[in-house]
Design a protein around this nucleic acid. Structure first.
Lengths: 218, 218
DNA sequence: TTGAAAAATGAACATTGTTCATTTTCTTTG
DNA sequence: CAAAGAAAATGAACAATGTTCATTTTTCAA
Protein backbone atom coordinates (compact mmCIF):
# COMPACT_ATOMS: atom_id res chain seq x y z
CA UNK A 1 0.00 0.00 0.00
CA UNK A 2 1.62 3.24 -1.15
CA UNK A 3 1.04 6.68 0.24
CA UNK A 4 -1.71 7.52 -2.25
CA UNK A 5 -3.54 4.36 -1.41
CA UNK A 6 -3.12 5.10 2.23
CA UNK A 7 -4.47 8.60 1.90
CA UNK A 8 -7.42 7.58 -0.26
CA UNK A 9 -8.22 4.77 2.07
CA UNK A 10 -7.90 7.05 4.99
CA UNK A 11 -10.22 9.61 3.42
CA UNK A 12 -12.83 7.07 2.36
CA UNK A 13 -12.52 5.38 5.67
CA UNK A 14 -13.14 8.56 7.55
CA UNK A 15 -16.08 9.40 5.30
CA UNK A 16 -17.89 6.15 5.78
CA UNK A 17 -16.95 6.04 9.39
CA UNK A 18 -18.66 9.33 9.92
CA UNK A 19 -21.72 8.25 8.01
CA UNK A 20 -21.85 4.97 9.86
CA UNK A 21 -21.58 6.77 13.14
CA UNK A 22 -24.39 9.07 12.11
CA UNK A 23 -26.55 6.16 10.99
CA UNK A 24 -25.91 4.41 14.28
CA UNK A 25 -26.88 7.51 16.14
CA UNK A 26 -30.01 7.84 14.04
CA UNK A 27 -31.13 4.29 14.70
CA UNK A 28 -30.41 4.73 18.35
CA UNK A 29 -32.55 7.84 18.34
CA UNK A 30 -35.26 6.01 16.41
CA UNK A 31 -35.37 3.28 19.02
CA UNK A 32 -35.61 5.86 21.78
CA UNK A 33 -38.37 7.71 19.97
CA UNK A 34 -40.35 4.51 19.47
CA UNK A 35 -39.81 3.49 23.07
CA UNK A 36 -40.97 6.87 24.37
CA UNK A 37 -44.06 6.71 22.16
CA UNK A 38 -45.00 3.26 23.43
CA UNK A 39 -44.23 4.18 27.02
CA UNK A 40 -46.59 7.14 26.80
CA UNK A 41 -49.25 5.14 24.97
CA UNK A 42 -49.38 1.97 27.00
CA UNK A 43 -47.17 2.54 30.00
CA UNK A 44 -43.57 1.65 30.68
CA UNK A 45 -44.35 -1.62 32.39
CA UNK A 46 -46.59 -2.81 29.59
CA UNK A 47 -44.08 -2.04 26.86
CA UNK A 48 -41.80 -4.90 25.86
CA UNK A 49 -38.61 -4.89 23.89
CA UNK A 50 -40.48 -6.85 21.24
CA UNK A 51 -43.03 -4.07 21.04
CA UNK A 52 -40.34 -1.51 20.50
CA UNK A 53 -38.56 -3.62 17.89
CA UNK A 54 -41.79 -4.37 16.05
CA UNK A 55 -42.89 -0.75 15.96
CA UNK A 56 -39.79 0.22 13.99
CA UNK A 57 -39.57 -3.00 11.95
CA UNK A 58 -36.35 -4.20 13.46
CA UNK A 59 -35.65 -7.40 15.30
CA UNK A 60 -35.30 -7.84 19.01
CA UNK A 61 -31.60 -8.42 18.67
CA UNK A 62 -31.03 -5.09 17.00
CA UNK A 63 -32.38 -3.24 19.99
CA UNK A 64 -29.82 -5.09 22.07
CA UNK A 65 -27.07 -4.02 19.70
CA UNK A 66 -27.86 -0.40 20.50
CA UNK A 67 -28.82 -0.74 24.15
CA UNK A 68 -27.33 -3.07 26.69
CA UNK A 69 -30.73 -3.72 28.26
CA UNK A 70 -34.11 -2.19 28.94
CA UNK A 71 -32.71 -0.13 31.77
CA UNK A 72 -30.36 1.61 29.40
CA UNK A 73 -33.34 2.69 27.33
CA UNK A 74 -35.12 3.98 30.40
CA UNK A 75 -31.91 5.62 31.44
CA UNK A 76 -31.53 7.45 28.15
CA UNK A 77 -35.12 8.67 28.23
CA UNK A 78 -34.65 9.70 31.83
CA UNK A 79 -31.80 11.98 30.80
CA UNK A 80 -33.72 13.27 27.78
CA UNK A 81 -36.65 14.18 29.98
CA UNK A 82 -34.49 16.15 32.36
CA UNK A 83 -32.95 18.00 29.44
CA UNK A 84 -36.48 18.72 28.26
CA UNK A 85 -37.59 19.99 31.66
CA UNK A 86 -34.56 22.19 32.02
CA UNK A 87 -35.14 23.54 28.54
CA UNK A 88 -38.65 24.58 29.48
CA UNK A 89 -37.47 26.17 32.70
CA UNK A 90 -34.56 28.01 31.07
CA UNK A 91 -36.95 29.98 28.88
CA UNK A 92 -38.12 31.75 32.01
CA UNK A 93 -34.84 33.66 32.42
CA UNK A 94 -36.75 36.27 30.44
CA UNK A 95 -38.88 36.90 33.50
CA UNK A 96 -36.82 39.54 35.23
CA UNK A 97 -38.46 39.65 38.64
CA UNK A 98 -37.15 36.58 40.45
CA UNK A 99 -40.33 36.07 42.49
CA UNK A 100 -42.44 36.14 39.36
CA UNK A 101 -39.97 33.80 37.72
CA UNK A 102 -40.18 31.45 40.67
CA UNK A 103 -43.96 31.38 40.38
CA UNK A 104 -43.74 30.77 36.66
CA UNK A 105 -41.24 27.97 37.18
CA UNK A 106 -43.67 26.20 39.44
CA UNK A 107 -46.42 26.47 36.88
CA UNK A 108 -44.19 25.22 34.08
CA UNK A 109 -42.95 22.37 36.23
CA UNK A 110 -46.46 21.26 37.11
CA UNK A 111 -47.60 21.43 33.50
CA UNK A 112 -44.57 19.42 32.48
CA UNK A 113 -45.34 16.75 35.04
CA UNK A 114 -49.05 16.46 34.45
CA UNK A 115 -48.71 16.57 30.67
CA UNK A 116 -46.15 13.75 30.64
CA UNK A 117 -47.04 11.61 33.64
CA UNK A 118 -45.32 8.53 32.31
CA UNK A 119 -42.09 10.41 31.68
CA UNK A 120 -42.41 12.16 35.01
CA UNK A 121 -42.66 8.81 36.73
CA UNK A 122 -39.60 7.71 34.82
CA UNK A 123 -37.73 10.75 36.10
CA UNK A 124 -38.72 10.58 39.73
CA UNK A 125 -40.57 7.54 40.91
CA UNK A 126 -39.26 4.68 38.83
CA UNK A 127 -36.51 2.74 40.52
CA UNK A 128 -35.38 0.50 37.72
CA UNK A 129 -33.31 2.78 35.49
CA UNK A 130 -31.04 3.75 38.33
CA UNK A 131 -30.33 0.50 40.04
CA UNK A 132 -26.95 -1.08 39.50
CA UNK A 133 -25.78 2.36 38.61
CA UNK A 134 -22.18 1.69 39.44
CA UNK A 135 -21.77 0.40 35.93
CA UNK A 136 -21.81 3.52 33.81
CA UNK A 137 -22.40 7.23 34.00
CA UNK A 138 -23.37 8.94 37.18
CA UNK A 139 -23.91 12.12 35.22
CA UNK A 140 -27.46 11.59 34.08
CA UNK A 141 -28.49 13.17 37.34
CA UNK A 142 -26.36 16.19 36.48
CA UNK A 143 -29.30 17.32 34.39
CA UNK A 144 -31.56 17.10 37.41
CA UNK A 145 -29.03 19.03 39.47
CA UNK A 146 -28.85 21.66 36.75
CA UNK A 147 -32.60 22.17 37.04
CA UNK A 148 -32.24 22.37 40.79
CA UNK A 149 -29.54 24.98 40.30
CA UNK A 150 -31.95 27.02 38.21
CA UNK A 151 -34.28 26.98 41.18
CA UNK A 152 -31.50 27.86 43.60
CA UNK A 153 -30.37 30.81 41.52
CA UNK A 154 -33.89 32.17 41.37
CA UNK A 155 -34.52 31.73 45.07
CA UNK A 156 -31.18 33.38 45.83
CA UNK A 157 -32.23 36.36 43.74
CA UNK A 158 -35.51 36.48 45.65
CA UNK A 159 -33.48 36.59 48.85
CA UNK A 160 -31.37 39.39 47.42
CA UNK A 161 -34.62 41.26 46.88
CA UNK A 162 -35.54 40.85 50.52
CA UNK A 163 -37.66 37.73 50.37
CA UNK A 164 -37.38 34.58 52.46
CA UNK A 165 -35.76 36.28 55.42
CA UNK A 166 -34.72 33.85 58.11
CA UNK A 167 -34.59 30.95 55.67
CA UNK A 168 -31.63 28.95 54.44
CA UNK A 169 -31.19 28.65 50.70
CA UNK A 170 -30.61 24.96 50.16
CA UNK A 171 -33.26 23.57 52.53
CA UNK A 172 -35.78 26.11 51.32
CA UNK A 173 -35.18 25.12 47.72
CA UNK A 174 -35.58 21.48 48.62
CA UNK A 175 -38.82 22.34 50.38
CA UNK A 176 -40.16 24.27 47.40
CA UNK A 177 -39.20 21.50 45.04
CA UNK A 178 -40.81 18.97 47.37
CA UNK A 179 -44.02 20.97 47.38
CA UNK A 180 -44.29 21.11 43.62
CA UNK A 181 -43.05 17.58 43.09
CA UNK A 182 -45.37 16.32 45.79
CA UNK A 183 -48.38 17.81 44.05
CA UNK A 184 -47.38 16.26 40.75
CA UNK A 185 -46.63 12.93 42.35
CA UNK A 186 -49.89 12.71 44.29
CA UNK A 187 -51.95 13.90 41.35
CA UNK A 188 -50.32 11.49 38.91
CA UNK A 189 -50.69 8.73 41.45
CA UNK A 190 -54.36 9.34 42.05
CA UNK A 191 -54.99 9.63 38.33
CA UNK A 192 -53.51 6.27 37.50
CA UNK A 193 -55.35 4.81 40.44
CA UNK A 194 -58.62 6.48 39.53
CA UNK A 195 -58.89 7.58 43.12
CA UNK A 196 -59.04 11.29 43.61
CA UNK A 197 -59.20 12.94 46.97
CA UNK A 198 -61.60 15.60 45.77
CA UNK A 199 -62.02 18.10 42.96
CA UNK A 200 -60.14 15.82 40.61
CA UNK A 201 -59.66 18.48 37.97
CA UNK A 202 -58.62 21.45 40.00
CA UNK A 203 -57.09 20.29 43.23
CA UNK A 204 -53.55 20.90 42.02
CA UNK A 205 -54.47 24.25 40.54
CA UNK A 206 -56.17 25.30 43.75
CA UNK A 207 -53.32 24.05 45.89
CA UNK A 208 -50.83 25.87 43.71
CA UNK A 209 -52.83 29.05 44.29
CA UNK A 210 -52.37 28.52 48.01
CA UNK A 211 -48.68 27.99 47.36
CA UNK A 212 -48.48 31.28 45.47
CA UNK A 213 -50.16 33.17 48.30
CA UNK A 214 -47.75 31.71 50.82
CA UNK A 215 -44.47 32.35 49.04
CA UNK A 216 -45.57 35.81 47.94
CA UNK A 217 -45.71 36.81 51.58
CA UNK A 218 -42.32 35.37 52.53
CA UNK B 1 -80.77 -37.47 59.81
CA UNK B 2 -82.84 -36.69 62.91
CA UNK B 3 -82.97 -33.47 64.82
CA UNK B 4 -80.21 -34.53 67.23
CA UNK B 5 -77.94 -35.47 64.41
CA UNK B 6 -78.69 -32.23 62.75
CA UNK B 7 -77.88 -30.21 65.84
CA UNK B 8 -74.69 -32.09 66.59
CA UNK B 9 -73.59 -31.87 63.03
CA UNK B 10 -74.45 -28.24 63.02
CA UNK B 11 -72.48 -27.62 66.19
CA UNK B 12 -69.46 -29.58 65.01
CA UNK B 13 -69.71 -27.96 61.69
CA UNK B 14 -69.70 -24.51 63.19
CA UNK B 15 -66.77 -25.39 65.43
CA UNK B 16 -64.55 -26.67 62.70
CA UNK B 17 -65.70 -24.00 60.36
CA UNK B 18 -64.55 -21.38 62.80
CA UNK B 19 -61.24 -23.07 63.32
CA UNK B 20 -60.76 -23.51 59.59
CA UNK B 21 -61.58 -19.88 59.02
CA UNK B 22 -59.08 -18.89 61.68
CA UNK B 23 -56.41 -21.15 60.21
CA UNK B 24 -57.05 -19.71 56.78
CA UNK B 25 -56.73 -16.23 58.18
CA UNK B 26 -53.53 -17.19 59.95
CA UNK B 27 -51.94 -18.60 56.83
CA UNK B 28 -53.03 -15.57 54.88
CA UNK B 29 -51.42 -13.37 57.51
CA UNK B 30 -48.30 -15.53 57.43
CA UNK B 31 -47.98 -15.08 53.69
CA UNK B 32 -48.40 -11.33 54.06
CA UNK B 33 -45.83 -11.21 56.82
CA UNK B 34 -43.33 -13.17 54.74
CA UNK B 35 -44.02 -11.03 51.71
CA UNK B 36 -43.52 -7.81 53.66
CA UNK B 37 -40.27 -9.14 55.10
CA UNK B 38 -38.91 -10.03 51.68
CA UNK B 39 -40.12 -6.77 50.16
CA UNK B 40 -38.26 -4.80 52.79
CA UNK B 41 -35.17 -6.99 52.55
CA UNK B 42 -34.71 -7.27 48.81
CA UNK B 43 -37.23 -4.94 47.27
CA UNK B 44 -40.67 -5.55 45.89
CA UNK B 45 -39.53 -5.99 42.32
CA UNK B 46 -36.90 -8.56 43.26
CA UNK B 47 -39.25 -10.66 45.36
CA UNK B 48 -40.96 -13.52 43.56
CA UNK B 49 -43.94 -15.60 44.54
CA UNK B 50 -41.56 -18.53 44.74
CA UNK B 51 -39.45 -16.62 47.24
CA UNK B 52 -42.47 -15.96 49.40
CA UNK B 53 -43.65 -19.56 49.19
CA UNK B 54 -40.19 -20.93 49.95
CA UNK B 55 -39.69 -18.66 52.94
CA UNK B 56 -42.71 -20.15 54.70
CA UNK B 57 -42.22 -23.70 53.40
CA UNK B 58 -45.34 -23.76 51.28
CA UNK B 59 -45.71 -24.34 47.60
CA UNK B 60 -46.29 -21.75 44.93
CA UNK B 61 -49.81 -22.96 44.43
CA UNK B 62 -50.74 -22.40 48.04
CA UNK B 63 -49.97 -18.72 47.75
CA UNK B 64 -52.38 -18.60 44.84
CA UNK B 65 -55.04 -20.29 46.94
CA UNK B 66 -54.91 -17.38 49.35
CA UNK B 67 -54.23 -14.56 46.91
CA UNK B 68 -55.58 -14.19 43.42
CA UNK B 69 -52.27 -12.77 42.18
CA UNK B 70 -49.24 -10.77 43.23
CA UNK B 71 -51.19 -7.56 43.01
CA UNK B 72 -53.58 -8.76 45.66
CA UNK B 73 -50.63 -9.26 47.99
CA UNK B 74 -49.35 -5.78 47.25
CA UNK B 75 -52.86 -4.52 47.66
CA UNK B 76 -53.26 -6.09 51.09
CA UNK B 77 -49.92 -4.68 52.27
CA UNK B 78 -50.87 -1.32 50.82
CA UNK B 79 -53.95 -1.26 53.03
CA UNK B 80 -52.02 -2.55 56.05
CA UNK B 81 -49.48 0.23 55.64
CA UNK B 82 -52.16 2.90 55.54
CA UNK B 83 -53.72 1.45 58.66
CA UNK B 84 -50.29 1.56 60.25
CA UNK B 85 -49.70 5.17 59.23
CA UNK B 86 -53.10 6.25 60.46
CA UNK B 87 -52.47 4.43 63.73
CA UNK B 88 -49.26 6.39 64.25
CA UNK B 89 -50.99 9.66 63.41
CA UNK B 90 -54.00 8.96 65.62
CA UNK B 91 -51.81 8.85 68.70
CA UNK B 92 -51.24 12.57 68.25
CA UNK B 93 -54.80 13.47 69.24
CA UNK B 94 -53.22 13.80 72.65
CA UNK B 95 -51.50 16.95 71.45
CA UNK B 96 -54.13 19.53 72.28
CA UNK B 97 -52.84 22.55 70.39
CA UNK B 98 -53.75 21.90 66.76
CA UNK B 99 -50.74 23.73 65.36
CA UNK B 100 -48.41 21.70 67.54
CA UNK B 101 -50.30 18.59 66.51
CA UNK B 102 -49.93 19.52 62.86
CA UNK B 103 -46.18 19.91 63.30
CA UNK B 104 -45.98 16.59 65.10
CA UNK B 105 -47.98 14.88 62.40
CA UNK B 106 -45.49 16.02 59.81
CA UNK B 107 -42.63 14.65 61.82
CA UNK B 108 -44.36 11.33 62.38
CA UNK B 109 -45.28 11.10 58.72
CA UNK B 110 -41.71 11.72 57.60
CA UNK B 111 -40.32 9.20 60.05
CA UNK B 112 -42.84 6.66 58.86
CA UNK B 113 -41.87 7.21 55.23
CA UNK B 114 -38.11 7.23 55.70
CA UNK B 115 -38.15 4.27 58.09
CA UNK B 116 -40.16 2.11 55.66
CA UNK B 117 -39.18 3.34 52.22
CA UNK B 118 -40.23 0.16 50.47
CA UNK B 119 -43.67 0.23 52.07
CA UNK B 120 -43.93 3.95 51.42
CA UNK B 121 -43.27 3.34 47.76
CA UNK B 122 -45.92 0.66 47.81
CA UNK B 123 -48.38 3.15 49.27
CA UNK B 124 -47.69 6.06 46.97
CA UNK B 125 -45.45 5.48 44.02
CA UNK B 126 -46.10 1.92 42.94
CA UNK B 127 -48.62 1.63 40.17
CA UNK B 128 -49.14 -2.10 40.05
CA UNK B 129 -51.37 -2.82 43.05
CA UNK B 130 -54.00 -0.40 41.89
CA UNK B 131 -54.29 -1.14 38.22
CA UNK B 132 -57.33 -3.05 37.05
CA UNK B 133 -58.94 -1.92 40.22
CA UNK B 134 -62.48 -2.29 38.92
CA UNK B 135 -62.28 -5.90 40.07
CA UNK B 136 -62.61 -5.67 43.82
CA UNK B 137 -62.68 -3.18 46.62
CA UNK B 138 -62.29 0.49 46.06
CA UNK B 139 -62.13 0.94 49.79
CA UNK B 140 -58.47 0.33 50.37
CA UNK B 141 -57.97 3.99 49.66
CA UNK B 142 -60.50 4.76 52.37
CA UNK B 143 -57.64 4.30 54.78
CA UNK B 144 -55.65 6.92 52.92
CA UNK B 145 -58.61 9.23 52.96
CA UNK B 146 -59.02 8.66 56.67
CA UNK B 147 -55.45 9.84 57.21
CA UNK B 148 -56.16 12.82 55.02
CA UNK B 149 -59.22 13.54 57.14
CA UNK B 150 -57.02 13.54 60.23
CA UNK B 151 -54.99 16.25 58.55
CA UNK B 152 -58.09 18.16 57.53
CA UNK B 153 -59.52 18.12 61.02
CA UNK B 154 -56.28 19.41 62.47
CA UNK B 155 -55.91 22.16 59.90
CA UNK B 156 -59.53 23.16 60.44
CA UNK B 157 -58.84 23.49 64.14
CA UNK B 158 -55.81 25.62 63.33
CA UNK B 159 -58.09 27.83 61.29
CA UNK B 160 -60.52 28.03 64.17
CA UNK B 161 -57.61 29.28 66.24
CA UNK B 162 -56.95 32.06 63.76
CA UNK B 163 -54.31 30.43 61.58
CA UNK B 164 -54.22 30.14 57.79
CA UNK B 165 -56.36 33.20 57.18
CA UNK B 166 -57.21 33.67 53.53
CA UNK B 167 -56.60 29.99 52.76
CA UNK B 168 -59.06 27.34 51.71
CA UNK B 169 -59.12 24.15 53.73
CA UNK B 170 -59.01 21.41 51.12
CA UNK B 171 -56.39 22.89 48.80
CA UNK B 172 -54.25 23.91 51.75
CA UNK B 173 -54.36 20.40 53.14
CA UNK B 174 -53.42 19.00 49.78
CA UNK B 175 -50.54 21.45 49.64
CA UNK B 176 -49.30 20.50 53.08
CA UNK B 177 -49.56 16.83 52.30
CA UNK B 178 -47.74 17.42 49.01
CA UNK B 179 -44.93 19.17 50.85
CA UNK B 180 -44.38 16.36 53.29
CA UNK B 181 -44.95 13.62 50.75
CA UNK B 182 -42.66 15.38 48.29
CA UNK B 183 -39.83 15.43 50.79
CA UNK B 184 -40.26 11.75 51.53
CA UNK B 185 -40.55 10.88 47.87
CA UNK B 186 -37.48 12.83 46.78
CA UNK B 187 -35.43 11.58 49.70
CA UNK B 188 -36.39 7.96 49.17
CA UNK B 189 -35.76 8.35 45.47
CA UNK B 190 -32.32 9.83 45.90
CA UNK B 191 -31.44 7.19 48.47
CA UNK B 192 -32.23 4.29 46.21
CA UNK B 193 -30.40 6.01 43.42
CA UNK B 194 -27.43 6.87 45.59
CA UNK B 195 -27.64 10.38 44.24
CA UNK B 196 -28.14 13.00 46.87
CA UNK B 197 -28.56 16.66 46.12
CA UNK B 198 -26.59 17.73 49.14
CA UNK B 199 -26.36 17.09 52.86
CA UNK B 200 -27.62 13.56 52.36
CA UNK B 201 -28.34 13.02 56.02
CA UNK B 202 -30.06 16.19 56.99
CA UNK B 203 -31.63 17.78 53.97
CA UNK B 204 -35.10 16.57 54.90
CA UNK B 205 -34.65 17.59 58.51
CA UNK B 206 -33.43 21.03 57.49
CA UNK B 207 -36.22 21.44 54.94
CA UNK B 208 -38.78 20.42 57.51
CA UNK B 209 -37.41 23.10 59.81
CA UNK B 210 -38.10 25.63 57.07
CA UNK B 211 -41.57 24.17 56.75
CA UNK B 212 -42.18 24.63 60.47
CA UNK B 213 -41.09 28.25 60.34
CA UNK B 214 -43.43 28.94 57.46
CA UNK B 215 -46.59 27.36 58.78
CA UNK B 216 -46.02 28.76 62.25
CA UNK B 217 -46.39 32.23 60.78
CA UNK B 218 -49.52 31.53 58.79
C1' DT C 1 -16.00 -9.36 -8.06
C1' DT C 2 -14.66 -10.78 -3.56
C1' DG C 3 -13.66 -11.35 1.15
C1' DA C 4 -13.69 -9.50 5.52
C1' DA C 5 -15.83 -6.42 8.75
C1' DA C 6 -20.14 -4.61 10.48
C1' DA C 7 -24.86 -4.98 11.24
C1' DA C 8 -29.00 -7.42 11.81
C1' DT C 9 -31.41 -11.46 13.02
C1' DG C 10 -34.35 -14.64 15.63
C1' DA C 11 -34.05 -19.09 17.77
C1' DA C 12 -33.23 -20.43 22.30
C1' DC C 13 -32.67 -19.85 27.28
C1' DA C 14 -33.81 -18.13 32.12
C1' DT C 15 -36.92 -16.09 35.05
C1' DT C 16 -41.36 -15.19 36.76
C1' DG C 17 -46.39 -14.88 37.17
C1' DT C 18 -50.12 -17.93 36.75
C1' DT C 19 -53.18 -22.06 36.09
C1' DC C 20 -55.09 -26.45 37.09
C1' DA C 21 -55.29 -31.42 37.26
C1' DT C 22 -53.66 -34.32 40.74
C1' DT C 23 -52.40 -35.63 45.39
C1' DT C 24 -52.70 -35.19 50.20
C1' DT C 25 -55.00 -34.11 54.38
C1' DC C 26 -58.95 -33.46 57.08
C1' DT C 27 -63.84 -34.14 58.47
C1' DT C 28 -68.13 -36.23 58.60
C1' DT C 29 -70.88 -40.19 58.70
C1' DG C 30 -72.55 -44.97 58.73
C1' DC D 1 -63.10 -47.44 62.86
C1' DA D 2 -63.44 -47.25 57.85
C1' DA D 3 -64.80 -45.00 53.92
C1' DA D 4 -66.39 -41.35 51.28
C1' DG D 5 -66.54 -36.75 50.39
C1' DA D 6 -64.75 -32.08 51.08
C1' DA D 7 -61.06 -29.01 51.65
C1' DA D 8 -56.41 -27.84 51.18
C1' DA D 9 -52.00 -28.20 49.21
C1' DT D 10 -49.08 -29.26 45.47
C1' DG D 11 -45.93 -28.64 41.60
C1' DA D 12 -45.71 -29.62 36.74
C1' DA D 13 -46.69 -26.95 32.86
C1' DC D 14 -47.77 -22.74 30.24
C1' DA D 15 -47.24 -17.89 28.70
C1' DA D 16 -44.92 -13.68 28.63
C1' DT D 17 -40.71 -11.23 28.73
C1' DG D 18 -35.78 -9.90 29.18
C1' DT D 19 -31.62 -11.44 27.35
C1' DT D 20 -27.87 -13.94 24.75
C1' DC D 21 -25.33 -15.44 20.88
C1' DA D 22 -24.38 -18.29 16.86
C1' DT D 23 -25.76 -17.51 12.31
C1' DT D 24 -27.16 -14.84 8.32
C1' DT D 25 -27.25 -10.70 5.71
C1' DT D 26 -25.39 -6.42 4.28
C1' DT D 27 -21.78 -3.16 3.45
C1' DC D 28 -17.59 -1.67 1.45
C1' DA D 29 -12.66 -1.37 0.54
C1' DA D 30 -9.48 -3.79 -2.41
Amino acid sequence: MNIVHFLCTEIDFMGTTERKAREKEELRALILKAARKLFVEKGIGQTTIRNIADSIDYSIGTVYVYFRDKNEILHALHTQSFVDLRGQLKVLINVKDPMERLKAMGKVYISFGLDNPEMYDLMFTLKAPMEFLETIQKDEWDEGKASFDLLKTTVQQCMDNGHFKGHKLEPLCFLIWSCIHGMCSLEIGSRTKNVNIKNPENIVTDAYDEFLIIISNL
